[in-house]
């Protein structure tokens, strides 16, 4: 199997939906711990820069989020201590810690998502949803920087012609307003020409397909199975109430029924899958290099 980042972008997106979706809807200590550990492990294997800054800021955020809940919320049977006549309870504290862990886990996942999903891959995913949306996006991606460059060019031309002086604010504003207005004209003009070009190249004559550099391979199917089956198990056990967990007023026990155990294991697989794949890739390259 290939590394996680080489998988087909739609498969990668489905993975993220599964792993984040289940972690967000199931407020269960085991699931949350697995989710956080998996997310951190994934980030560590993918992050090449290895800077501590992000972890420090995430840890601070975690502390703040964890503390906020017991300060504002006083439900729960086990009172730890009393501040200003308000009881701080163990249940509220633990709830805060787990809720914070869930949020931090999701943030870590998003960090890796932005690292892995480049503009090309996102475009491919949109293309699968709708070829038209993806065409509009790709045109915008070309158009906005082009317009910025043209604006810079117009500005420096006008400067060298010395028509709009920079001596006072009124003249500068007037000059900028003119540049803005001509850029509007320029955009319209370009829009018409682009439309011509699209028509000349057969746009709208047939049902469009979307070309992509990414292909769905056997390993994508395998990964998709490893992603969907555990999610299904977790979802079924959650629907049957096997992984229900309550913090208030007193914490319920962590269920150890066969289905609950199966769902913990399933979620563990789901959560650690990318990190394990990436780690395996690393080993493979090391092995190949040492053989060479």
């Amino acid at each position: 199997m290939r590394g996680f980042r080489e998988l087909e972008p739609v498969v990668i997106t489905i993975y993220y939906v599964c792993v984040i979706g289940t972690a967000m809807f199931i407020m269960h200590p085991v699931i949350i711990i697995l989710s956080l550990l998996g997310a951190v492990a994934m980030f560590l294997t993918f992050d090449r820069k290895r800077k501590a800054g992000l972890h420090v800021s995430f840890f601070l955020l975690f502390m703040i989020l964890a503390v906020i809940n017991p300060i504002w919320y006083h439900n729960g049977v086990t009172v730890l201590f009393v501040v200003n006549d308000s009881p701080i309870t163990l249940e509220a504290l633990l709830y805060g810690i787990f809720a914070a862990a869930m949020i931090i886990a999701v943030l870590y996942r998003f960090r890796t998502f932005t690292m892995i999903m480049t503009a090309d891959k996102l475009m491919h995913v949109f293309g699968k949803l709708s070829p038209k949306v993806s065409l509009i996006l790709t045109m915008a991606l070309r158009y906005i920087p082009m317009m910025q460059r043209q604006t810079v060019k117009v500005r420096s031309t006008q400067k060298a012609l010395g028509i709009y002086k920079e001596d006072n604010i009124a003249d500068t504003l007037k000059g900028e307003a003119r540049i803005f207005s001509i850029m509007a004209t320029w955009s319209l003009e370009n829009g018409i020409i682009t439309a011509d070009s699209m028509e000349a190249r057969g746009y709208g004559t047939h049902r469009r397909t979307a070309f992509s550099l990414f292909r769905f391979r056997a390993s994508d199917a395998l990964f998709l199975a490893l992603c969907i089956i555990p999610t299904a198990i977790v979802a079924v056990s959650a629907a049957l109430g096997e992984t229900d967990f309550g913090f208030y007023p007193a914490m319920s026990e962590i269920s150890c029924s066969p289905l609950a155990l199966a769902s913990y294991i399933s979620y563990g697989i789901l959560s650690f899958l990318p990190a394990v794949l990436e780690w395996k890739e690393g080993l493979r390259w090391k092995y190949l290099i040492s053989r060479v």
Partner: peptide, 19 residues
């Protein structure tokens, strides 16, 4: 003026996508 998309590969494929 003729270019529609942002990437070389997409530009090459544009005509084919339309067909």
């Amino acid at each position: 003026h003729q270019i529609v998309t942002d990437k070389v590969w997409h530009e090459l494929a544009f005509g084919l996508e339309n067909l």
